[in-house]
């Protein structure tokens, strides 16, 4: 790896001040599982790294008035094992548990995964169906916006160079709703998703019809996306195989998959259909018995 200057920040203010001071040559580092690989591969050469691992504001998982707050520095292993996340947002825990392997989950952080804005990130779909908010800290203080607005394009986020993702908040009204995450890769572990998906499902009390379904997909468009056409179709429809099939077909239309060395667009469209059914059925299966 090429030489760089290294600073360790001990508060959010210090971190963004350092990033601003050395902009545009500085990058923040947390788990390093993405950044260091790109540096070793000679894809990027930051002159300054600001280590934010010890920034206290970005730590921890807590239930607040607003909802479930997950600090950006919480590792995937911690998200996956958290009793709070497992209780109130099980699909989020499952998604973090599917990232990489044990070693990468112990280093990699939820925030790092999200801000990388790689289309296939596993942490995004489950948070999107729970309508998570992003809390961002910058030199001018905090701002908060829907997580969907973080994703601009492949490896491109809406953060300015001196802004950091502080936390994500899953709003209180969505806590505990039936969700499911599913991922399809070429291997069962340590793999990048060819397609990943999450659903949040609500039904009528008799459990015969969908009342509202939110569906999100990854690795099938320049950013993780919500499948709005499929969602609109499902609202009010009966819970039936042919409805799920049609929803899968519509979800594939919501997406813009590409051919790459991992899979063809055609195969990805097929996978969208399969995973759409799987996550909706998975969320239904997780609901308490009628």
């Amino acid at each position: 790896m090429k030489h760089f200057e290294y600073f360790s920040a001990h508060s959010a203010e210090e971190a963004v001040a350092l990033l601003q001071k050395y902009s545009p040559d500085a990058l923040p580092i947390a788990g390093g599982t993405e950044l260091l690989v790109r540096m070793k591969q000679n894809l990027i050469h930051p002159k300054v790294l600001v280590d934010i691992t010890h920034v206290p504001e970005f730590q921890g998982i807590a239930l607040t008035e607003e909802g479930l707050r997950i600090g950006s520095l919480v590792t995937h292993a911690e998200v996956a094992a958290s009793p709070l996340v497992r209780q109130f947002a099980p699909a989020v825990a499952a998604a973090s548990g599917s990232v990489g392997a044990v070693q990468t989950r112990n280093l990699g952080t939820l925030g790092g995964n999200l801000v990388s804005c790689v289309p296939s990130i596993d942490s995004a779909p489950a948070l999107l169906v729970l309508e998570a908010q992003a809390v961002v800290f910058g030199v001018n203080g905090r701002r908060q916006f829907p997580l969907t607005e973080l994703f601009v394009g492949p490896r491109c986020s809406s953060l300015t160079p001196a802004e950091l993702l502080e936390a994500v908040i899953i709003p209180r009204h969505n806590l505990g709703k039936p969700t499911c995450f599913s991922k399809f890769g070429r291997r069962k572990a340590l793999t990048i998703a060819l397609v990943n998906a999450a659903a949040c499902v609500e039904t009528n009390p008799e459990r015969t019809h969908f009342s509202q379904v939110r569906l999100a997909l990854g690795a099938v468009a320049p950013t993780p996306i919500r499948a709005y056409t499929a969602e609109a179709y499902l609202a009010g429809r009966p819970i039936a195989q042919e409805v799920l099939l049609e929803a899968g077909r519509l979800a594939a239309e919501d997406a813009k998959p590409i051919d790459d060395f991992r899979a063809s667009a055609e195969y990805r469209r097929h996978l969208i259909g399969v995973l759409t059914r799987r996550v909706i059925e998975g969320a239904l299966a997780g609901m308490p018995k009628v």
Binding site: T33, D51, Q103, N106
Partner: peptide
């Protein structure tokens, strides 16, 4: 690393 398995190729020594 503090009892947890990590890839030491992805940990900066300073950390």
């Amino acid at each position: 690393f503090d009892g947890k398995p990590v890839n030491s190729c992805l940990v900066l020594a300073v950390r």
